[in-house]
């Protein structure tokens, strides 16, 4: 029994994905020993939020076959919503201090960002993708991709026209002394952001595995016709998928408001990073996206640490090009499609 498990574990580790993951962990530990534990801390905090972005991207690709290039804009909408929710509450708190409310205020802002992101997702699906799908499904991947670029331009310029180009940021969500973990001081915001990402990923996982609706989403990603045959309302699932995906991007944008103030094109960096992740992990592979997000985050942190901060886009991009040439399905890639399978 135990030997069987060990054997299975050994097989997994020997696969490309396994080797890469083990290598990443070893590198993370070594560099943390030599340079300081902040490397792991930074990786984990950025990785968590990147995972939320990438899950959404993988989901939309796996279920709807849409190569989403407006994903960063839902991140931007999340950060904007959080800003305009948090600032008034903070101002109110300045006048009437209240401990419970000041702990809850960031959570309320993030929740608002999730709702706003989800709402925008629903609107994009209902107004745009639904109508394209009804008109024609020929050349779907290309046409829907071009539409997402259009959505992106629209939202970026919309932000600029309505809210202006200045940085709309906050210094911190949670006041209080930083936590001390492994001799590194980690700000409360970073800590809570990480905990939040783990919680959300966990909830999402449970939703996909254990609920009837989650199973329906997976079914649609594996066989649309089959899903209709068992009575699944495709358009309902498509709306829900967009809502979830954009809502998760909204959470990421809101939770990182203290690092990335909101401005029109704030979503560009997270968009590119999450695309790196899903190319690395294999498009439409949600589980791979979570692991891949931490690996890309590590790569970025290490590049900044060892090579210099101007290079943090160059190295991942070069790596992505290599992957596209040698392993176009991604390192976790499989022939069969499905959003929650490896």
């Amino acid at each position: 029994m135990i030997t069987e498990y060990l054997k299975k574990l050994y097989e997994t580790i020997r696969s490309v994905a396994g080797i890469t993951v083990v290598l990443a962990i070893v590198v993370a530990i070594l560099s943390s020993i030599f340079r300081g534990p902040y490397i792991i801390v930074n990786t984990v905090v950025t990785g968590g939020m990147l995972a939320l972005m990438s899950i959404g991207l993988a989901l939309v690709f796996g279920v709807m076959n849409v190569a989403q290039f407006a994903h960063g804009e839902y991140f931007m909408i999340g950060s904007l919503t959080a800003y305009y929710t948090f600032i008034p509450i903070e101002r109110y708190l300045g006048a009437n201090p209240n401990a419970a409310l000041s702990f809850l205020a960031p959570l309320v802002s993030i929740l608002a960002a999730f709702c706003m992101g989800a709402l925008m997702g629903v609107l994009s699906e209902k107004l745009i993708f639904y109508n394209l799908r009804k008109r024609s499904r020929t050349n779907w991947v290309m046409n829907s991709f071009l539409l997402t670029v259009g959505i992106s331009v629209l939202l970026v310029n919309g932000h600029q026209l309505i809210f202006g180009t200045e940085l709309k940021g906050i210094v911190r969500y949670w006041t209080g002394r930083p936590f001390c973990i492994m001799d590194v001081f980690v700000s409360r915001d970073r800590c809570y952001a990480f905990i939040l990402s783990v919680l959300v990923i966990g909830l999402f996982w449970l939703f996909m595995k254990a609920t009837r609706t989650g199973r329906a989403i997976r079914a649609v990603s594996q066989d649309e016709t089959g899903a209709q045959m068992v009575g699944i309302d495709l358009s309902g699932i498509q709306v829900l998928t967009m809502a979830l995906s954009c809502g998760l991007a909204g959470i990421a944008g809101a939770s990182l408001l203290f690092m990335f103030p909101s401005y029109p094109s704030v979503g560009l960096d997270p968009l590119y990073m999450s695309w790196f992740v899903i190319i690395l992990a294999g498009m439409g592979n949600v589980l791979g996206a979570v692991v891949g997000a931490f690996m890309v985050a590590l790569l970025k942190v290490l590049t900044m640490e060892y090579i210099g901060s101007g290079w943090d886009f160059v190295v991942p991009t070069a790596l992505i090009m290599l992957i596209l040439i040698f392993k176009p399905n991604g390192i976790f890639g499989s022939d069969v499609r499905g959003v929650l399978e490896q």
Partner: peptide
């Protein structure tokens, strides 16, 4: 049109979706 990445059991449960 089976769900090829789900188990036999899960496929049957999907059949009972309604």
């Amino acid at each position: 049109n089976l769900f090829s990445n789900m188990t036999v059991h899960e496929n049957l449960l999907m059949g009972a979706y309604t």
